[in-house]
Measured scan of single mutants.
Amino acid sequence: MQIFVKTATGKTITLEVEPSDTIENVKAKIQDKEGIPPDQQRLAFAGKQLEDGRTLSDYNIQKESTLHLALR
């Protein structure tokens, strides 16, 4: 499925993911596309910060959802 990640600079990244993917996997995909190390990424959805060990389906993130990326 496709999801979107909006960066602090307003850029939107499109990612191909599975509901079973962990947040860690998603951060690795962002690193592949943007070169941002996962340990510098903070992802949020619906106002909640997402934890590495959880999956997209844990957070009820569905196709075409938009996550927000902040850098630490």
Rank of each mutant, 00 (worst) to 15 (best):
V17N: 01
N25F: 14
M1I: 08
A28D: 08
T12C: 04
I13M: 10
T14G: 12
L71Q: 12
F45I: 05
E34Q: 07
K11F: 15
E34A: 10
I30Y: 03
L67S: 01
K11V: 11
Q31V: 05
M1T: 03
F4I: 11
D21Y: 13
E34S: 14
P38I: 09
T14Y: 06
E24Y: 13
K27V: 02
D39N: 08
E16P: 05
E16F: 11
S57R: 12
N60C: 04
T7M: 14
I61N: 00
G47T: 05
L15C: 03
Q62D: 14
E51I: 11
T22I: 07
H68E: 07
R42L: 14
L71D: 07
L71E: 09
G35Y: 04
Q2M: 06
T12A: 06
L71V: 14
P19M: 13
P38M: 13
Y59L: 05
Y59W: 03
E18T: 14
E64K: 07
T7H: 13
T14N: 11
A28R: 09
E64H: 15
I36D: 03
E51A: 09
R54S: 07
D32C: 05
E16R: 11
L15G: 00
S20T: 08
I3K: 00
R54Q: 09
T14V: 10
T66C: 04
Y59H: 03
Q40R: 09
N25M: 07
P38Q: 14
E51S: 06
K27N: 01
I3R: 00
N60I: 04
K48N: 13
D21N: 07
T55V: 09
T22D: 05
H68T: 11
T22N: 08
D52L: 05
V5G: 01
P37M: 10
I3F: 01
T55S: 08
K48C: 04
E34P: 01
Q31A: 14
S57V: 09
N60T: 05
L50Y: 01
K33T: 10
P38R: 10
N25G: 13
T14L: 08
D21V: 05
L56A: 02
S57W: 10
H68F: 07
I61Y: 01
Y59S: 03
G10F: 05
P38E: 06
T66F: 06
Q41C: 04
I23Q: 02
K33Q: 10
Y59K: 01
N60E: 02
E18Y: 15
K11G: 09
K27F: 02
K6Q: 11
T22K: 13
K29Y: 13
K27R: 05
D52W: 04
N25S: 15
D21P: 01
G47V: 02
N25I: 09
T22F: 14
S65E: 14
P19C: 04
N60P: 03
F4T: 07
G53P: 07
A70K: 08
Q62L: 13
F45M: 05
L71Y: 09
G35F: 08
D32M: 14
I30A: 01
R72S: 11
R72T: 14
A46I: 07
Q41I: 15
T55D: 03
L50I: 04
E18H: 10
T9L: 12
E34K: 05
K27T: 02
R72N: 11
Q62K: 15
D58P: 01
Q2D: 07
L56D: 00
E64V: 03
K6T: 15
G53F: 12
K63A: 10
E64Q: 12
E24N: 12
L50C: 03
K11R: 13
K29I: 10
I3G: 00
D39Q: 08
A28G: 10
A70C: 05
A70T: 09
P38W: 13
L50N: 00
T14K: 07
T14H: 08
G47P: 01
L67I: 15
E64F: 07
Q31C: 04
R72F: 13
L43G: 00
N25V: 10
F4H: 12
N25D: 09
I30K: 00
K48Y: 14
V5A: 04
V5H: 00
I23E: 01
E64P: 03
F4G: 03
A28Y: 13
T7R: 07
A70S: 06
E34V: 08
T55G: 03
D32W: 13
P38D: 04
V26T: 06
K11S: 15
V5Q: 00
G47R: 04
T9D: 12
T66D: 03
P19E: 13
Q49H: 14
V17K: 00
P38G: 10
F4S: 05
M1V: 06
P38H: 15
G47S: 06
R54C: 05
Q62R: 14
A46Q: 14
F45V: 04
P19Y: 15
S57L: 08
L69E: 01
T55R: 12
I36F: 14
Q2P: 13
R54T: 09
D39G: 12
A44Y: 13
Q31F: 11
V5K: 00
V17M: 14
N60H: 12
T12Y: 06
N60K: 07
A46R: 15
R72V: 14
L71R: 09
K11Q: 09
P19K: 08
G10A: 13
S57A: 12
I36L: 12
E64N: 15
E18N: 10
A44K: 14
L56W: 01
E64D: 12
I36R: 03
E51H: 14
E16N: 13
L69I: 05
K48A: 15
A8G: 10
L69M: 13
G53Q: 13
D32H: 11
T12D: 05
A28M: 10
P37S: 12
G47Q: 06
S65G: 06
N25Q: 13
T12R: 15
H68I: 09
L50E: 00
D58E: 10
T14M: 07
V26R: 00
T55W: 04
T22C: 04
E24R: 15
V26F: 02
K27M: 04
K63E: 12
I30M: 03
G53Y: 10
E64M: 07
E64W: 15
V26H: 00
I36P: 03
E34G: 04
T12F: 15
K33M: 15
N25T: 12
D39A: 11
S20W: 10
T9S: 10
M1C: 03
Q31N: 15
N60G: 08
V26C: 03
K63P: 14
K63T: 15
A44Q: 15
P37W: 05
T7P: 06
Q40P: 02
R72P: 11
T7C: 04
Q31E: 13
T22M: 15
I13Y: 06
E24L: 11
K33G: 06
V5D: 00
P37T: 08
A8D: 08
R42K: 12
L15D: 00
V17P: 01
K6R: 10
K27I: 02
V5C: 03
S20R: 12
D21L: 14
Q62G: 09
N60D: 15
Q40D: 11
K48V: 15
F4M: 05
L50M: 06
A28C: 04
G47D: 09
K63M: 10
S65H: 14
A44M: 13
E16M: 13
Q31Y: 12
Q62T: 08
D52N: 10
Y59I: 02
P38A: 11
K33Y: 08
K33V: 15
P37E: 12
K63H: 08
T66I: 06
Q31R: 08
E51Q: 14
D58L: 03
F45K: 03
L15A: 02
I13G: 01
E18C: 04
G53K: 08
K48D: 08
K33P: 02
N25E: 11
I3C: 02
Q2C: 05
Q41H: 03
Q40H: 13
A8C: 05
